[in-house]
């Protein structure tokens, strides 16, 4: 089972839920797709870590072969190429590495060079294989690192937990597209509810089965609960504010590895969403 954990708003507890679900399973792979600030590894402290660079392709133009026909510039739907003084000029941050310019060039003047954009770290933490995507600072697009992290993570057996980035943009869509189930972590506040609705809209378009976990709940919040009822989104569990959980989180401890009752809670969540095989 491939489970994507989403929130819309940052800081609601995606990593808390993802890490503990993976740790509560018999065997799991945890994929950190929040590649701008991957922090699952701070809890798992994976051992035997191997790293691998992630590259994207960037077109290079051979000025000797280019005859200025402009076909590449006209082809690029992202407008990453412009035509100045009868030569193409590339904007690397806008390029989506589709390779189209190289295909349409009649002069074979375009070659694609590898450009490093980030790296993957793969390690083990007891029952969990930990795959961490790390985007290089200053890179505009997280998508290539997320794709590589997912591809690597999917090669391992067991429950797959995808810790998604916050928000509802391209990087979130990339992270959730290959999942069988979308698990939302929502804060019962106006801000939390607003951003939850945005990411819910994305998941609904992708037609994924989904459910909600409320976190940091200090009481009922009818707007969110009514919305879930109306949309028939199952409310799987509510975590109240808890000093114990906050203390465990602050010291980078995985709660289900310390607290047997909490382990049962997370195993129950897995059962509710069809993940009993992972127990």
């Amino acid at each position: 089972m491939r489970l994507a954990v989403l929130s819309g708003k940052g800081g609601t507890g995606k990593t808390f839920v993802s890490v503990n679900l993976a740790a509560a399973a018999k065997k799991a792979v945890y994929i950190d797709c929040d590649v701008e600030e991957p922090n699952g590894r701070l809890f798992f402290r994976p051992q035997d870590v191997v790293s691998a660079p992630v590259h994207t392709l960037l077109p290079q133009f051979d000025a000797g072969k280019c005859n200025g026909c402009r076909k590449c510039v006209d082809f690029c739907r992202f407008h990453a190429l412009v035509y100045i003084k009868e030569k193409p000029m590339i904007f690397p941050d806008v390029c989506h590495s589709c390779g189209g310019c190289a295909l349409v060039c009649p002069q074979k003047a375009v070659s694609e060079e590898k450009r490093p954009v980030g790296e993957l770290e793969i390690g083990v933490s007891e029952n969990v294989t930990v795959v961490t995507g790390i985007l290089n600072m200053g890179e505009a697009s997280a998508v290539p690192v997320i794709q590589e992290a997912l591809q690597t993570g999917f090669s391992y057996a067991g429950l797959t937990v995808i810790d998604c980035p916050p928000g509802s943009s391209c990087s979130v869509m990339e992270s959730v597209s290959a999942a069988d189930y979308a698990l939302f972590v929502a804060e019962p506040t106006a801000f939390g509810f607003h951003n939850f609705q945005m990411v819910y809209e994305l998941v609904r378009l992708l037609k994924k089965p989904c459910g909600v976990i409320l976190n940091k709940a200090d009481g009922p919040y009818p707007p969110l609960e009514d919305f879930c009822q109306k949309e028939q989104i199952p409310l799987l569990h509510t975590f109240p504010f808890s000093e114990e959980l906050a203390a465990l989180g602050a010291e980078g401890t995985i709660a289900v590895r310390k607290n047997e009752a909490l382990k049962h809670t997370f195993q129950n969540i897995l059962r509710q969403i069809g993940g009993e095989n992972a127990l």
């Binding site: 510039v73 739907r77 992202f78 407008h79 990453a80 412009v82 035509y83 100045i84 904007f91 806008v94």
Partner: peptide, 16 residues
Amino acid sequence: QAQGGAGLKAAQFLVD
């Protein structure tokens, strides 16, 4: 109405 790279496309339009 470009989906992305509007500034680049508009600049190209001026250069052309």
